[in-house]
Simulated assay, not measured.
Amino acid sequence: MSQVKRYTGQKAVQLVADIGGHVEGAAVILLHGGGQTRHSWRGAFDALVAAGYHVISYDARGHGESGWSPDGDYTLPVLAADLQAIIDTLETPPTLVGASMGAATAFYLAGATRSAGIGALVMVDLVPRVEQAGADRILAFMRAYPEGFATVEEAADAVCEYYPHRPRPRDPSGLMKNLRRGENGRLYWHWDPKMLEQDDRPEPPPSLADRMSSVKDGISVPVMLIRGTRSDIVSDAGVAEFRQMLPQLEVVDVSGAGHMVVGDSNDAFNSGLLDFLARNRL
């Protein structure tokens, strides 16, 4: 069982989270990628709770049920401040598990604070130097369909076109968690379009190399990268550069998975995550 909780982030933006597991268990915070919501972690959330962890999975500002930035600011420092507000409510250092935008947020905060109050980092398919073609593909999808969709089936068609390797769900109603209904009755993706209007956007990142390099010396905790072997965002060269940046980096390859590792191969992802947590006694 999980419960819904609200946190107050930077500039009083309300952040909505699912909370599960015993409060005395080791804490794990799940940070979704840009354009997603906390519900993308459902399988991992349940597996972590079953393993005895205290789990927090929240909608980033501008996403899902959380509030939107009143000034349209979605830069990493602001996202990191939101994350810090959640960490400040915990009594023990959490493990931060982030996908794409969430990974960048977690890494930036850990480095900027010299890992204070953080137990470990798990980066899901993100390295400092991402492949531009893959980033362009994400951006094109997120900017597509500004007119929205008449039905959830239309939205499902768009997702299937973007993920041709995934089988189409028999019932697309679950996609409603990623959609909001506008005043005109049409359905729109459940995130603030202003996120894409800034040069220093968090998703897809134009270039994280300089920003991550600037804080890397503050990373003193265990770090694992879980990447999909079919990812168009993370390359072998990008992983090699990341290894040079962080000597303690562990890497787990999930065979057949793309950039959306958790959605493509949840069981393999959970196995790698739980093994990392157990080996590091987290």
Rank of each mutant, 00 (worst) to 15 (best):
V4T: 15
A158C: 03
A26N: 15
V234H: 09
G33F: 05
N184V: 02
P128I: 02
M245K: 03
A81E: 13
Y162C: 01
A103M: 11
G64L: 04
R279V: 03
T105D: 01
A116P: 05
D88A: 15
W189A: 12
L30G: 05
V261P: 07
S231P: 10
N184Y: 04
A27Y: 05
R181I: 12
R42T: 07
R201Q: 08
D192V: 10
L90G: 12
G258P: 08
A44Y: 03
V23E: 15
G52W: 00
N184E: 14
V261L: 04
L274P: 01
D71T: 14
G72D: 05
L30Y: 04
L139C: 09
M1Y: 07
A110K: 10
P94R: 02
D232F: 03
P202Y: 00
I29E: 00
P167V: 12
P128W: 08
L83I: 09
I19D: 00
G256M: 06
I19G: 09
P205K: 01
L48D: 05
D18A: 10
V221R: 04
D267Q: 14
Y74C: 06
L83W: 12
I87A: 02
Y162R: 15
V262M: 13
N270V: 14
T8N: 10
F149E: 09
L246N: 09
G218S: 08
Y74E: 04
L225T: 02
R279I: 01
V4H: 07
L76Q: 09
D253G: 04
D18R: 14
A133P: 02
V78F: 05
A150N: 12
D18I: 02
H54Q: 12
G20A: 07
G62C: 08
E154L: 10
G263R: 13
I138N: 11
R186F: 05
A17E: 07
P93W: 07
I219H: 02
L179E: 11
P167H: 04
Q14M: 10
A150S: 13
L79P: 03
A257Q: 11
A140P: 01
L208N: 06
P93V: 04
E91V: 12
Y74M: 08
L79A: 12
D59I: 08
E203F: 15
Q248T: 13
G185Q: 13
I138D: 08
R129M: 05
D171F: 10
M176D: 04
S115M: 09
A150V: 07
A50L: 02
Y7M: 03
W68C: 10
P94K: 02
N184L: 05
V16P: 04
D253R: 04
T105E: 12
R227N: 12
